[in-house]
């Protein structure tokens, strides 16, 4: 389980910015879960060429080369 990285007050502010109004219990739950999002976001960082573009809708080189 990740260390909570946002206080419940901060989480309440995040949620309000996103447009949600939740109970204190739900806010606490999201504060814990938010840690996982931050961890995942950190893990996908790393050395990457500036030419590494997003794969929005990716395409394979060609049918021929794929086979």
């Amino acid at each position: 389980m990740p260390t909570p990285i946002a206080s419940e007050a901060e989480m309440g502010a995040f949620l309000a910015r996103a447009g949600f109004s939740l109970t204190p219990e739900q806010v606490a739950e999201y504060a814990e879960a938010y840690g996982y999002i931050v961890e995942m976001s950190a893990r996908i960082r790393g050395e990457r060429s500036y030419m590494a573009e997003p794969a929005h809708v990716f395409s394979f080189p060609s049918e021929e080369s794929a086979r």
Binding site: L15, A18, S41, I44, R48, E53, P54, A55, F58
Partner: peptide
């Protein structure tokens, strides 16, 4: 709602790799 745009884009870049 809590995923930042830059993290989404970087996930798409990682996907390409």
């Amino acid at each position: 709602a809590f995923i930042r745009a830059c993290d989404y884009v970087n996930a798409l870049r990682e996907r390409g790799r």
